[in-house]
Design a protein around this nucleic acid. Structure first.
Lengths: 123, 123
DNA sequence: CTGTATCCGGTCTGATACTG
DNA sequence: CAGTATCAGACCGGATACAG
């Protein structure tokens, strides 16, 4: 297991926000679950082509569950089945995630152009 | 110098957004500049008590400048003076940053409570 | 004052093997 | 199928020294 050594400072609202949406796949996971893709294996399949390993999905799911953003429901049986749902707070992230996603898509071309110029300027 | 070894995938709007606001101090830096604290030394003083080193501030400033979020103005002379301004795209981050910050402050207590419960449950 | 180079330890995450 | 353990390599950022 992995244990943090530096205490986090969560006085800042942005830091709190980043804890929930800042991971590499967290925002995507939240969107998936909202879209009805609730089972870990399905979520993984959704984004394994992008390089997400099942381990990281599992870790993010657990973190989000611990934070109270997700609620986990277990259906006993073989094979075992698990589904995750958004809690009320989980729901409250959706407008924010949507806004971030839209902003990124809108500004993408501009921002990447900026990068390219900087690259050319230093070569 | 530090050089990335894994190419980034910026097809996703969230990733683009995180590139601009996801660093440890980037959002704070953008807020500072918007508040009229434009010089690197001032920005640093603003948050060195929180542990930000001048090096990281400089790096973030450069990154944001390269992306076209900030514009850098140099006043020659001794001592050298530099000021950073928000570009139009830089300005467009403000509502988003404000929204994230507010969300974090609102949900902070709930999220931390969730963490505490998870901790108790496993001990 | 501004910015760069180097080092280094903490953190994140992909890969793999494994348990239930 | 769901989840855990361990490893390794990339990333992030703090400290320091130094250059313009």
């Amino acid at each position: 297991m992995y244990e943090k050594k530096i205490p986090e400072n969560l006085d800042c609202g942005i830091s709190v926000c980043m804890k929930v949406m800042g991971g590499k796949w967290k925002a995507w996971i939240i969107e998936c679950i909202h879209d009805g893709i609730k089972r870990p294996s399905k979520i993984h399949r959704q984004m394994e082509t992008e390089g997400a390993s099942l381990r990281v999905i599992t870790m993010h799911l657990k973190e989000l569950e611990d934070l109270g953003v997700l609620y986990k429901k277990i259906y006993p049986g073989t094979p075992l089945r698990v589904e995750y749902y958004l809690t009320e707070v989980g729901m409250s992230t959706l407008p924010l995630i949507k806004a971030m996603s839209q902003w990124g898509r809108e500004k993408r071309a501009y921002l990447l152009q900026g990068e390219r110029n900087a690259y050319l300027a230093t070569n």
